[in-house]
């Protein structure tokens, strides 16, 4: 087993453990944004798609790189945007009890 593979496996295992540790503390109120944020983080596959495109020299390689880049771009950009949109809705209670007039629709 090469040294680089061994270090990659170590990184993988330790990251898994860090993930378990960090995420088990997230309250269920935030589970949807958490999942959406995790979803955006695996958008890092865009880096993989970029390196693939850099190594491509054949038509097949270009086609695969194009689809991979489009998929990954959608994943990462859309994922972060929608996570942020959700999280900005989570508000603290207003300090003085807020009047309902602006929300009345009757």
């Amino acid at each position: 087993m090469s040294a680089s593979l061994l270090s990659d496996i170590s990184i993988f295992l330790l990251s898994l453990l860090v993930g378990f540790e960090v995420i088990s503390k997230v309250p269920s109120t935030l589970h949807t944004p958490l999942m959406s944020a995790a979803n955006s983080i695996h958008g890092i596959v865009l880096v993989g798609a970029m390196l693939t495109a850099a190594a491509a020299h054949t038509t097949v390689g270009y086609v695969l790189s194009f689809i991979a880049a489009a998929f990954a771009g959608m994943n990462v950009v859309g994922g972060y945007r929608v996570t942020d949109r959700m999280l900005q809705m989570f508000k603290r209670p207003p300090l003085p009890p807020k009047g309902g007039t602006d929300q009345d629709r009757s």
Partner: peptide, 24 residues
């Protein structure tokens, strides 16, 4: 994919997401 192309960023991020999904 990170193992395939030898990229630690993909390995770390992928493992974090794998752990989070498993817990949920």
């Amino acid at each position: 994919a990170g193992f395939v192309i030898g990229n630690s960023a993909l390995i770390i991020a992928g493992a974090l997401v794998g752990a989070s999904g498993a817990i949920l």
